[in-house]
Design a protein around this nucleic acid. Structure first.
Lengths: 343, 343
DNA sequence: TCAACGTGTGGGAGCGCTCCCAAAGCGCAC
DNA sequence: GTGCGCTTTGGGAGCGCTCCCACACGTTGA
C-alpha cells in the first residue's frame, strides 16, 4: 500500500530560474510553454538560465495546476494476456510508443487480469489519472468502454465490438484480408475451399467469415456450409475443426483459417490424417504471428499492419484528447497477403 | 509538443470529504493513509464520507506534496526491442505487473530506440519523474546504469553486466541451466557433446559456456575445444556454427545451444547435412521461447523462471525505493529443464 | 496634448495534498 | 483541585506550477 517516503533530491524550480534570469515567474512559464507574448531578449535570458541551472519542469506541479496528467494508459485485458507474447501486442506497443516519442505523453501499461485489478483500473481511470486510454481488443460485453464513455475519458479501441462501434477505433480490414486469402486459394486452382472460423461473437472473426463468403460468391462458387467449421482461435479448436472438415467434406483441398494458431492445429490434424500440405490441402492463416514462420512448412498468412495500427491508435487518442478530433475518429487499415509454402 | 488542455471533470477533494465527515483535512489525510492515530469513531465517519462522495485522492497533488511519483519505469533498450516479441519480455512484464498489482505504483513503459529517445529518457529520469527504474537486459557498455547510480535513482537490472555487478539485479542461473542441459545429454548416453555459445562479451552467454564446461568436467570428460563453436544468439549464427561443428567434429552427437533461436538455426544446418534429430544428433536450447515449441521436432530446452524474475525485480525495486532494502539486493533464480523431443 | 490601444511583464491566487505544530480532550496520580 | 502526560484533532504553510489580473511601457490617432 502506502507511498514510501523517497529521498528528495534538490532540483531547480521555475522560481529559481526566474530569479536567475531576472524576470518574473510568469515570464519563465511563458517561455517554457512557448507562448509568443515574450520579447526575444527576455526569452533568450530565460533560456540561458534554464540551461545553466539544468531546469526541468516538475510534472506533478503542472498536473496539479492544469488538471492534466500528460499520460495515457494502454490496457491489456486478461484474455489477451497470452496473446501478449505474440508479435501482435509488441507491434502495437511499438507503434504507440513511436507515435508518442515526440510528445511529452507518458505511456502507462496496465494488465487487467482479474476482477480486483479491473476494479483498481476503473477507479484509477475514474480518478482521471490519465488523459486517455488505449484498449487492446475488447470483448463485446466488456463494460470498460462504456465506463470510459460515461466519464468522458478519451479512448480508442483496437478493433471494433460491432459494425456500429460508437467509440473511436482502429481496426484492420478483416474482411478484406479474408478475401485476399480466398482469392489467392482460388488463383492456385483450389476447388473445395473450406474455412475454420473464430468465435463468431467476436466481430473480427465474423468479418473474416464474411470475407470468405464474399470472395467465393464473387468467384461464382456456390455456398457450401459443410466447408465451414467453427473454432475459437485456439490451436486445439483448429485441430478439432479440421478433423470435422475432413470427415464432413473429404474433398476439401484448401482451408482458410481465421488465425495462425488455429492453422497450426489444422496442420496437426492433416498430418494425423496423412494429408500433405500444400500438396493435397493448401492452408492459409491470419495474423502472421510467430507460429506461422516456424511451422513446417512455413504458413502462408494474412498480415495486419500492426505497428501502423498502434501509431494510428495513438494519433487518434491524441487528437481526441486535444479535441482536434474528427468526432470519434476511426481507421480501418489494409491487410496484406504473406505468401509462404502452404499454398 | 505542448500539453493539450483537457476538459476538467469535477471530483471531490479531500477538503470536501472533511466537511462531509465533520472533521479536519488532516484527519481525512490520516485515514486515507492508514495512520493509527485516529479514533475508530472518526475513522468510520471519514470512511463513510469517502464512500458517499466517491472520493479518490489526486495523485498529482500528493506527488507534489511529498516529492514522490508512485511510478516506476520499465525500460527496454533497442537491441531488445525485437526480443520483445518473445515470451521473455511479456513474462517479465507480467511478473512486474503482478507484483505491482497491490501497490499503488504505476508502471511506465519506455522503449528506447535511438539516441534521441535515449536523451529524452535520461532527462526524464534526471527530473525524477519516476521513483525507480527497471532495466531489461543492459549491455556492458550502456551508460544508463551509471547515470542512474549517479543521480541516486533506485534501479534493478534484469541480468548482470559482469560477475561483480554493482547495481541491484535479478538474474537466472545461467550456468546451472547449462549444467542441467549437459547432464541431461550425458544421461541420454551422448558421447560427443558440443555447444554453440552466445556472444561471450555478454555475461549470460559466458555463464552458459562455463556451465557446459563444468558439467563435462564433472562427468570426467576431457575438454575438446573443437566441440565449441561461437554464435551471437541469432538464427543465422546458429546455422553457421552448426556447420562449423559438423566439419570440425563430425562425430558430434549432441549440441547444447545457448539460445533456442540458435538451436533453430542449428536444426536447419543439421537438416541440410542430412542428420536426423534426435536420432543422430540431440539438440537442446535455452530460453524456452516460442520457437522451441514450434520446431519440428519440438525442442528440449532450459526454461528460466521469467515471470518470477519480473516479480523479483519489482520486489527488489520497491524495497530499494522504500530503503528497506538489503543494500543492493540481488537474486539468482533457478532454471529448469523442459524436455521435449530433440533429446 | 491626451486618450486609447497594444505588447510585455510581474506576481497573487489557487490547484489538492501532506507535514507538523499547537491545542483540545481525557485520564490518572498526587 | 491541580498538574502532568497521553491520545486525538484542526488547520496553517508549503510543494511548483499555471492562470489571469493589473500595470508599465511604448505607439498611434485625433
Amino acid at each position: 500500500m502506502g507511498a514510501v517516503r523517497g529521498r528528495r533530491v534538490v532540483r531547480p524550480t521555475l522560481e529559481q530560474v526566474a530569479v536567475r534570469a531576472g524576470v518574473g515567474r510568469g515570464t519563465v512559464s511563458r517561455v517554457i510553454n512557448g507562448s509568443p507574448l515574450v520579447s526575444d531578449r527576455t526569452r533568450a535570458a530565460v533560456e540561458a538560465a534554464v540551461a545553466e541551472l539544468g531546469y526541468v519542469p516538475n510534472r506533478a506541479a503542472r498536473a496539479l495546476a492544469v488538471g492534466t496528467t500528460d499520460a495515457i494508459a494502454l490496457v491489456v485485458p486478461e484474455p489477451q494476456t497470452r496473446l501478449f507474447s505474440e508479435p501482435y501486442f509488441s507491434g502495437i506497443l511499438r507503434g504507440v510508443s513511436a507515435e508518442l516519442a515526440d510528445t511529452d505523453m507518458q505511456l502507462l501499461l496496465t494488465l487487467v487480469r482479474d476482477q480486483r485489478e479491473r476494479e483498481r483500473f476503473e477507479q484509477f481511470v475514474s480518478a482521471h489519472r490519465v488523459d486517455g486510454v488505449l484498449l487492446v481488443s475488447v470483448h463485446g460485453d466488456d463494460p470498460l468502454p462504456d465506463l470510459l464513455e460515461s466519464i468522458e475519458m478519451p479512448a480508442v479501441l483496437n478493433g471494433r465490438r460491432s459494425a456500429e462501434e460508437p467509440l473511436a477505433y482502429v481496426d484492420s480490414d478483416n474482411a478484406g484480408g479474408a478475401v485476399l486469402a480466398v482469392e489467392h486459394l482460388i488463383g492456385r486452382g483450389r476447388r473445395a475451399i473450406g474455412t475454420i472460423t473464430g468465435p463468431l461473437d467476436m466481430y473480427a472473426a465474423k468479418c473474416r467469415l464474411d470475407g470468405y463468403r464474399e470472395a467465393l460468391r464473387a468467384a461464382g462458387r456456390e455456398d457450401d456450409e459443410s466447408l465451414i467449421a467453427h473454432g475459437d482461435f485456439t490451436e486445439d479448436s483448429g485441430r478439432r475443426a479440421m478433423r470435422e472438415l475432413l470427415t464432413r467434406a473429404p474433398q476439401v483441398d484448401a482451408v482458410f483459417c481465421a488465425s495462425d494458431v488455429m492453422a497450426a492445429g489444422a496442420r496437426m490434424a492433416l498430418r494425423e490424417a496423412g494429408r500433405t500440405v500444400p500438396g493435397e490441402v493448401a492452408l492459409i492463416g491470419f495474423d502472421d504471428s510467430s507460429v506461422a514462420r516456424h511451422m513446417d512448412p512455413p504458413l502462408t498468412t494474412v498480415r495486419q499492419p500492426i505497428e501502423e495500427m498502434g501509431r494510428a491508435m495513438a494519433r487518434a487518442l491524441l487528437d481526441e484528447i486535444g479535441q482536434r478530433a474528427a468526432d470519434r475518429p476511426h481507421a480501418v487499415l489494409p491487410t496484406e497477403l504473406i505468401q509462404r509454402e502452404t499454398t
